[in-house]
Design a binder for these strands. Structure first.
Lengths: 135, 135
DNA sequence: TGTACTGTAATATTTTTTATTACAGATAAA
DNA sequence: TTTATCTGTAATAAAAAATATTACAGTACA
């Protein structure tokens, strides 16, 4: 559960709690003690995936692009994970070793399976569900 | 899928393929182009969890402490994850914000759920299974 | 007694993450 | 139309984490 996912989820939570309002990156960053530029970077990914919308200029900011019941945490996870999303193993095993030669592929396959399990779990929880846990 | 898990799995694979032999950290490290001290560090964790045994002195090295059918990748995952294993979120949200005040706990809970999903998946695969994928 | 290991600490290097600074472009309002 | 306040983005710096290196004590064997 890395920092990027935390930022994205935090922002979506705020947007969900204040529907209709445009929230600025400064406001949001202040709410989580993080740098505004990082917030804008994560927002770019969320927007690329169609989860949020943004408006530039004075009175600009961010808002949800979908009802919170339609956004799952799996969507968020996949959005912030871009752009790698393909080929994550920088293996450097000894190719002269029969195990070393093959293990990279097997570990990659395993990583894919684990990734799928994570996404399956996260796909059962929407932002709406998540926010409803709050008092 | 971090480097520590990779090292641990790689070593266990080698141990499984060469039963009865004691493998040295130097040999193993050479097989995966990694520093021998890192290998010894991971081995300490695996031994603490009873997955391997080690022997010091000349002709020393590492061997499996259990039949490979009894070691799951979940065991490995949990072993290398020590010692944190408790309280992973270094949250620094603004406590003056009602969302910031609570989100840390909710994200921690979520992280626990995801962790459980990962372990569930990995517990279905033994080292024996993993090694059997190799030619 | 010398050799070849593990165990471990201390330190350095590399990589990754996060923060900062800077500024162009957009939009609204004075 | 000018000024203020945003987003978007790049470039750079600082901090944190992962990995590598060096060093050496302790152990076991031949």
């Amino acid at each position: 559960m890395n920092g990027q996912f935390q930022i994205a989820t935090h922002v979506l939570t705020l947007l969900c709690k204040q529907p209709g309002e445009l929230l600025s990156s400064d406001y949001v960053a202040g709410s989580m003690n993080v740098n505004p530029v990082l917030v804008r970077k994560e927002m770019r990914k969320l927007r690329a995936c169609g989860l949020i919308e943004s408006k530039e200029g004075k009175t600009g900011g961010y808002s949800l692009a979908l009802p919170p019941q339609k956004i799952t945490l799996a969507d968020v996870y996949k959005a912030v994970k871009l752009p790698p999303a393909l080929g994550q193993a920088k293996n450097k095993p000894n190719p002269a070793c029969p195990v070393g030669k093959q293990i990279g592929a097997h570990l990659d396959h395993l990583a894919d399976d684990v990734e799928a399990a994570i996404i399956k779990k996260l796909s059962t929880i929407t932002i709406f569900d998540f926010v409803n846990q709050f008092d």
